[in-house]
Amino acid sequence: MKTDDLIAMLASGPDVAAAPPPGARWRAAGTLSAGVLGSVALMAMLLGVRPNLEQLARLPDFWIKVGFVACLCLAAWQASRRLCMPGAPTRALPLLLALPLLLMWALGALILQEAPAGQRAELFWGATWRSCPLLIATLSLPILAAVLRLMRQLAPTRLRLAGAAAGFAAGALAALVYCLHCPELAASFVGFWYVLGMLVPTAIGAALGPRVLAW
């Protein structure tokens, strides 16, 4: 077959995704797992697992918090994936990220509205608002390093945006780890202070993206 014929056949045929190198998915899973384990180890050293975690896990509010953070993890991971695939559709990503946020904020606003006036401040500020965002940001650092390393092996083109997505994914996973320690359950607290903690690694990722992800 002539070279020109081969090129024409490939151009006119169905889209064929490039096959990843053998073992690439296992290495990616290992890299991400190492980042998450690093975050868990950091949480265990700095904070420890909540002594009454078993009791908290019996409350619906605990699972609402975990479900919210897990949804953000999935949305952020999907955004990171697509931003590393040139030509992948990204139009739906803002809605994918915004949907769990809007639902949590609506729930938080409803709870605040129905709560007695004297309890509203406690529901929003909780007892750990000073430390919560900083702790989530700190726990996200091993995961951020792992996600950026994975992204370097792919082909991101919008480097700052890809770095921001990596940071948000790291922050969401770190928030999930932080749930093992955090005593706060109020939707208004989680919807604000947890998200603020996730935005710190998002900003770090956006700053590092053009330098770390250039190829």
Results as ranks from 00 to 15, higher is better:
D4S: 09
D4V: 08
D4A: 12
D5T: 14
D5M: 07
I7K: 10
I7E: 03
I7R: 12
I7Q: 10
A8Q: 14
A8F: 05
A8C: 13
M9K: 06
M9C: 07
M9V: 07
L10E: 15
L10F: 10
A11Y: 12
A11F: 02
A11N: 13
A11K: 11
A11I: 03
S12W: 12
S12A: 14
S12H: 13
S12V: 13
G13N: 09
G13H: 06
P14I: 11
P14Q: 03
P14M: 07
D15I: 02
D15K: 03
A17K: 04
A17H: 09
A17P: 03
A18W: 13
A19I: 14
A19F: 03
P20K: 04
P21L: 12
P21R: 12
P22F: 02
P22K: 03
P22R: 04
G23W: 06
G23M: 03
G23Q: 12
R25W: 01
R25H: 08
R25F: 05
R25T: 10
W26A: 14
W26C: 13
W26R: 09
A28V: 02
A29P: 06
A29W: 00
A29Q: 03
G30D: 09
G30N: 00
G30K: 11
T31M: 14
T31K: 00
T31L: 08
T31H: 05
T31Q: 00
T31E: 11
L32F: 05
L32A: 04
L32I: 02
S33D: 07
S33Y: 04
S33K: 06
A34C: 15
G35L: 00
V36T: 07
V36I: 13
L37A: 07
L37S: 01
L37F: 05
G38K: 01
G38I: 01
G38E: 03
S39C: 13
S39E: 02
S39A: 12
V40P: 01
V40Y: 00
V40S: 00
A41H: 08
A41E: 09
A41N: 11
A41G: 07
L42F: 05
M43K: 01
M43F: 01
A44E: 15
A44D: 15
A44K: 14
M45V: 15
L46Y: 07
L46G: 10
L47Y: 02
L47R: 00
G48H: 08
G48M: 07
V49P: 02
R50F: 09
P51A: 04
P51N: 06
P51H: 05
P51T: 07
P51V: 08
